[in-house]
Design a protein around this nucleic acid. Structure first.
Length: 486
RNA sequence: GGUACUUUGGCCGAGUGGUUAGGCACCGGUCUGCAAAACCGUUGACGGCGGUUCGAAUCCGCCAAGUACCUCCA
């Protein structure tokens, strides 16, 4: 398959370092707040990649970290990190905050049908590794200690390697534009970044290190944990585009400085989600949590949207495009998804007959979907192919076309493979059907209605329909009789 | 200011040189006691100007508009 590599800004053929094993690392959430739409996109994107690589026969070790040490707040809050701040404000243990939001994150991911990664390491559980990694960089001469903190020497590193190759930044220019703004800091240069930070007295998350009691810098966990679980060199590193600079740039520098070589072969970045053309952000007030989507409890939402609708909506855009969220767009996706799922249910009940057509479009579905996935995970095109197949399914269902047993078997297999296994779309309404007795009771009512209809007793028939509708049932009359759903 | 990128029909969203993407909506039709649903079908587009080419939504240049990153963020 081909993967767009941010490093080369080109699509490249994916060749694993140690086939059939593949190492995949993705930047996970910082757990100091409720999971929101922004967490859903990378999780779903790389979930599909994880599923597809496995489908291709690779043994994938998928590492997605939990950032529970917290990134530094801005300079005004010098030295305080998000989790520590949240814990202090709520008078909780930092790990209480972490546990609470990790649980919430897992719950949301499960609802979105995102498979759990192979390893989900916590930054707080890998302080030793981060200290060792920092020491390696110091030993290699690319870092310096200052007042108990350790900083990465970007200028020196840039002389031997090249800092900024991922995001296209030029260190000389960065130094020129920022040098004068820099006051008396512990850092030699404003572009230098912290590998270890000495904790201020009020900072409650702290660990002992050779340099001071403190905590690791923001980028260290990914270098340390990535190489710990996937080796000094591994295949794919993913994350949001906003992490390209400085986070991933610094990661590259750290790993390269410590190990003398690049760790990551393919860098993949998913684009952002916008709301009304604007980025979603806490400071912009257009922030919507996943729970708010599931319940519809937000002024920007016209109604509740199911997790599968969110998942489908995200997959209807390519992962490298921005995707603009609106209630309208979501409603459009919801309807399309429903149609697709009903078609799939219909397909599973179909029976084949007639002669085998040798050049049936059914047999193109597999190769078309495969080609789309191989082209940098083009899920919107896969979905378009499924909609094309849906047309065939409906024609057969309506008796306007016939299909051979062989074609039907292929269609069922491929449709199910892509929709359920690879895109990870499942029919949620199946869970809403209730017990068998309950279903039979509803069927009984609707059968009575059917009889009333036969007798042209419209009063009874309409009464049953209207009252069930009022209770939230959706009644559909069909040729054979009826269908219903809650 | 620097860096990266975007601009496709009413809306969402694929597509990188020549052939229908797809979804939603609209419209027409089938079905129906009525209605809904479902199904079928049709219409409709490539920001502006110039260039390369037999031919450009697709390549190049300029212009315009917009977004993100450079500071916590997926």
């Amino acid at each position: 398959m081909n993967i767009y590599n941010t490093l080369s800004r080109k699509k490249e053929e994916f060749i694993p370092l140690h086939a059939p094993n593949v190492g995949l690392y993705v930047c996970g959430p910082t757990v100091y707040g409720d999971p929101h739409l922004g967490h859903a996109r990378p999780a779903i994107t790389f979930d599909v990649l994880f599923r597809y690589l496995q489908h291709l026969g690779y043994k994938v070790r998928y590492v997605r970290n939990i950032t529970d040490v917290g990134h530094l707040e801005n300079d005004a809050d010098a030295g305080e990190d998000k989790i520590a701040k949240k814990a202090r404000l709520d008078q909780l243990e930092p790990m209480e905050v972490v546990q609470y939001y990790v649980n919430r994150y897992h719950k949301a991911m499960e609802a979105l049908n995102v498979l759990p990664p192979s390893i989900e390491p916590h930054a707080s559980g890998h302080i030793m590794e981060q200290i060792e990694f920092t020491q390696k960089i110091l030993d290699a001469g690319y870092a310096y200690e200052s007042e108990g903190s350790v900083y990465f020497d970007v200028e020196k590193y840039n002389k031997d390697y090249r800092y900024g190759k991922l995001s296209g930044r030029n260190v000389e220019e960065m130094l020129e534009t920022t040098r004068e703004l820099d006051g008396q800091s512990e850092k030699r240069r404003s572009v230098d970044f912290a590998l270890w930070k000495k904790a201020s007295p009020e900072h409650i998350m702290r660990w002992k290190a050779p340099w001071s009691e403190g905590f690791p810098g923001w980028h260290m966990e990914c270098s340390a944990m990535g190489t710990k679980y996937l080796g000094e060199e591994f295949d794919i590193h993913g994350g949001g585009m906003d992490l390209m600079f400085p986070h991933h740039e610094c990661e590259i520098a750290q790993s390269c400085a410590a190990l003398g070589k690049d760790s990551v072969r393919y860098w993949m970045h998913n684009n952002m989600i916008t709301i009304g053309g604007q980025k979603m952000g806490k400071s912009l007030g257009n922030f919507i949590t996943l729970e708010q989507f599931f319940t519809g409890n937000h002024p920007l939402l016209s109604k509740a949207f199911s997790p599968m609708t969110i998942r489908f909506f995200i997959l209807q855009a390519h992962y490298r495009s921005t995707v603009d969220f609106s209630s309208e767009a979501l409603e459009a996706s919801e309807k399309g998804l429903e149609r697709l799922l009903e078609g799939y249910a219909r397909l599973l009940k179909l029976e084949g007959a007639g002669p085998m057509a040798s050049a049936s479009p059914v047999f193109d579905l597999r190769s078309d979907c495969e080609a789309a996935m191989n082209d940098d995970l083009n899920t919107p095109v896969v979905i378009a192919h499924l909609f094309d197949a849906l047309k065939t399914i409906n024609l057969v269902h309506d008796g306007k076309a016939s299909i051979s047993a062989g074609e039907l078997a292929e269609l069922k297999e491929v449709f199910g493979l892509y929709l359920e296994k690879l895109l990870g779309i499942k029919d949620e309404s199946a869970q809403n059907k209730g017990t068998e007795a309950y279903q039979k009771a509803i069927d009984l009512l609707l059968n009575i209605r059917l009889e009333a209809k036969k007798n042209k007793d419209w009063a009874t028939s309409d009464r049953i329909r209207n009252e069930l509708s009022a209770l939230g049932f959706e009644i559909k009359d069909t040729k054979e009789g009826f269908e219903w759903r809650l």
